Amino acid sequence: MTAIISDVRPDDRRHTEGFARIRNRALPFVLYTPDSIAYDVTHAHPDAHYRPLLAEQDGEPIGTAQVGIAHDSAEPNQGYLNVYVDPGHTRRGAGSLLVRTAEEHLAARGATKLFAWVLDEPGNRAFAEKHGYHASRSAHFLRLDLAGSTLPALQSPPPGVELRKGSDFADDPRPLFALDAETMADEPSDIPHEFTDYQAWLQETWHHPLFSAELTTVALVDGRPAAFSAARTDGGTHYGTVMTGTAAAFRGRGLAKLAKNDSLHRARAAGYTEAFTGNDAGNEPMIAINKWFGYEICGTEVRYVRELA
């Protein structure tokens, strides 16, 4: 039977649970929960034209797609579609149907250049190339066994440096927004993002149900936020760092490593047993830091690009 494509409705638990289940099977290195799926749909920026899709066959969810416009990029008319099919239900046409539906949605909203993350496996890469996409940069997923590994010992901050929890900024998180915006500005990416909308950042980052302000660590230099390691959790046993960075004026002093080590130790003490993170394949300094902590590469994605006529 042919797959049926529908929009994910945030108030439909079957939709959000099905979407999260497929993503956790196809992409177990990234945190998804039904609540986070519903939140993303409900709080997406209107200019993103965000449209998560669900492919179903005989009433069973078998495929997903995240589709939208990169509204916070300085370059206009860029869209993205990230398609993942349940590993047990591939080669049934769901992926192609999701791609076609996503491309029609993006083209109707003016997108002329499309980006898609594809797992670095022969079948997935062939699928992308069959649909007219060509390979660009790559990125790694890394995993750390928090329960069984030995973390580097905690170190006392040097003079003038103080470690604080992200939750200490609950009354006014704007300094963290400024730090996040600065560090993201030179993050390797095919789609450079500009963080200029504080309210959007509050919605998409600070108030996100996966974000853990309590396990996020910020390094202050003479009272100014200089480096941080932002944490997400699934409320179970999985913890992830979604951004670790240092403001340009404070680089080369080991502050990001100091902040991340503090966050990892506190995550393990809180009962989390697996830690995940991701790095652009060309970001060798951050990959080296993560390997120093004991992370190992557990998967790789390739960014594929297609120009629309």
Rank of each mutant, 00 (worst) to 15 (best):
P188Q: 13
F211G: 00
D145I: 05
E162D: 13
M243L: 13
L179M: 07
G160T: 12
Y198D: 12
F195E: 14
Y198V: 08
A181S: 01
E162F: 00
A230G: 15
F228A: 15
D171V: 04
A219M: 13
A227S: 15
M243G: 13
G132D: 11
R232L: 11
G235M: 06
A219H: 13
T217F: 07
H207E: 07
Q199I: 10
W206N: 04
D186P: 10
L146V: 06
A178D: 15
F169Y: 12
L144H: 03
F169E: 02
Y239W: 15
D222T: 04
S229C: 04
D197G: 14
D145H: 05
E214Y: 03
P192Y: 00
S136Q: 04
S189M: 11
L142P: 06
L220C: 14
G132E: 14
T150V: 15
M184V: 02
P159V: 09
Y133V: 06
G240L: 05
M243W: 09
R137C: 09
A200S: 15
W206G: 00
T241V: 14
M184L: 07
A226V: 03
Y133I: 05
F177M: 06
S229Y: 02
F228C: 14
H208Y: 13
V221F: 01
S138Y: 09
S156H: 11
